[in-house]
């Protein structure tokens, strides 16, 4: 199982996948927004989205876990 972490502080702009979806390495799963910059966060391995820890609009800090993939 791998953790998907926030690469910057900001708010969760969009969640593109749902729990249970299968994703591939490099596929965008969540988009963070901070200071007018949208950063897509991608899965780093093939697998299934086990859990999404955040909701759209949540504020996250750099390094916070956003989702688990297994």
């Amino acid at each position: 199982m791998s953790e998907v972490k926030a690469s910057m502080a900001g708010s969760v702009w969009k969640i593109i996948v749902a729990e249970g979806d299968s994703v591939t390495n490099g596929q965008d799963i969540i988009i963070l927004e901070s200071m007018k910059m949208e950063i897509p966060i991608a899965a780093e391995e093939d697998g299934t989205v086990k859990e999404i820890k955040v909701a759209e609009g949540d504020f996250v800090n750099e390094g916070d876990v956003l989702a688990f993939i297994e």
Partner: peptide
């Protein structure tokens, strides 16, 4: 810019 000088990610 208020940002990390290496990754260029925002740093509020």
């Amino acid at each position: 810019y208020a940002e990390d000088p290496v990754t260029f990610y925002p740093s509020p």
